[in-house]
Design a protein around this nucleic acid. Structure first.
Length: 400
RNA sequence: GGAGGGGUGGGUGAGUGGUUAAAGCCACCAGACUGUAAAUCUGGCGUCCGGAAGGACUUCGCAGGUUCGAAUCCUGCCCCCUCCA
């Protein structure tokens, strides 16, 4: 059995970069694509209408969060995730594997399951590969993900290898649960959903290779690269991405999970990645950091207090077309929710336009110069600063 | 007129002889955020020099005093609040 409702075609290649299209029961998506993150069935602060106006073609939801609240059964009874959140276009759900990584002390990973304590009420829950699949079937996204084990950067090799082996075992179980289960609980959904496999292996090239080969041996309709952007250097991340994309089949979509920043998206596309998702644009927006063509900027900085002009003159987003930077500054200082909304609009607009620009340049065989131009003008955050702040952040959080 | 309480750094508010350039919170300034436990977190925040360590100087209503040493004790003055008449 295969996934009949999901198809993917590469339309054009320009170097390693490629543009393509995939079709789902809720419409087709042009790649390379960025998927805004709607963890709890909402792109934080925005209405679906606004997200569509921004040109988002597909969004990502999270099975762990929705399983805890409002519950898979509930969403299913209310018509499924699309209907529930009134998002008519494609949706991809993540399995909850990432939460086993990010929730630190709230979870324990064993060979055949992940044991969580709910961050909401402390109650205990177990995710098996089979349950991760049936949860996602109940939610009804167009693309669902295998349960995997993501591991923090800096972990010892044996630990990384163990997590990878689990991820492989679980991938097999997920595949069987999704494609070979004769009577799935949510059969209608199950039949039209595509299940993607996930490659792990940390930053160890030989593990990544083994992982890619193993995962590719299972005929998933798409393949994801997981376990990156978790603390390794950009160079390591780019190397690993490059290595893995080369091992993935050319005729299936490649999804780099949890990435990323503008510069990472450009690099990812250059290495042949087709799909991305990341909380960064929206999260950072809520904290006042806005993307501009030259780099990130904090709208709450004093220097914007009296800027009687848009943040970016030539930006065509709703925020820049209608408001001055001084107004955005004021909204952030006054902690008005509109500030969070306008900032989210601006950043998603920036990222989605960036993706469109890349797609267009690939179609016109000028991706290299697009990429060069981007790097010439966009200055990313200094890596040493990021590392330092990251450590402080983790220390304050109690650490992953 | 009587009784009591109080005046601390931009605000609020701890501190009642040395460990105090003075807690915490707010405001302010800056930085971070990558499959969202995140409208969060981290620094800085009297002045001057220094990248920092550190050093110098000036601060707790005002003026005197006691003491080796005072935001803290004493005296006088100014101002504010509560209650009684």
């Amino acid at each position: 059995m295969t996934a009949p409702a999901f198809t993917f075609q590469v339309q054009h290649r320009d170097g390693s970069a490629r543009s393509g299209q995939f079709a789902t029961p809720h419409g087709s998506v042009e790649t390379p694509i960025f998927m805004p993150v709607a963890t709890q069935a909402t792109i934080k602060t925005l209405t679906p209408h606004e997200v569509m106006d921004l040109g988002a073609q597909i969004v990502l939801g999270n099975a762990y969060h929705l399983y805890l609240r409002p519950g898979v059964e509930t969403v299913n009874r209310l018509g499924g995730l699309h209907q529930f959140m009134r998002w008519p276009r494609p949706i991809l759900t993540d399995s909850g594997g990432f939460q086993a990584f990010s929730m630190g002390a709230f979870r324990r990973v064993d060979d055949d399951h992940i044991r969580f304590r709910s961050h909401i009420d402390g109650s205990e829950h177990i995710f098996t590969p089979e349950l991760a699949i049936s949860n996602q079937q109940g939610l009804g996204a167009d693309i669902i993900m295998c349960l995997d084990q993501c591991i923090e950067y800096g972990a010892e090799r044996p630990e990384v290898e163990k997590a990878m082996d689990r991820t492989h075992r679980w991938a097999r179980l997920c595949y069987d649960a999704h494609y070979n289960e004769p009577e799935p609980t949510y059969a209608d959904n199950a039949r039209r959903q595509a299940l993607f496999g996930i490659v792990q292996g940390g930053t160890f090239p030989d593990l990544r290779q083994r992982s890619a080969e193993f995962i590719v041996s299972i005929p998933f309709p798409g393949y994801a690269i997981g376990g990156l952007a978790v603390g390794e250097s950009k160079a390591q991340m780019y190397e690993t991405t490059q290595q893995v994309t080369e091992l993935l089949p050319g005729d299936k979509p490649r999804y780099l999970m949890g990435v990323g920043s503008p510069e990472d998206l450009v690099e990812g596309v250059s290495q042949g990645v087709d799909m991305f998702d990341c909380v960064l644009p929206t999260r950072v927006a809520r904290n006042g950091a806005l993307f501009t063509r030259t780099g990130r900027v904090n709208i709450a900085n004093r220097r914007f207090a009296e800027q009687d002009a848009p943040l970016e003159e030539d930006c065509s987003c709703y925020a820049c077309e209608n408001f001055t930077a001084a107004y955005l500054w004021h909204l952030f200082k006054a902690k008005e929710v509109l500030g969070l909304r306008l900032a989210s609009v601006h950043n998603l607009h920036f990222i989605l336009r960036l993706m469109e620009g890349m797609r267009q340049s690939i179609l016109e065989d000028r991706f290299d110069s697009f990429r060069r131009d981007f790097h010439d003008t966009y200055r990313p955050t200094d890596e040493a600063t990021r590392q330092r702040q990251k450590e402080k952040w983790l220390a304050a959080r109690g650490g992953v």
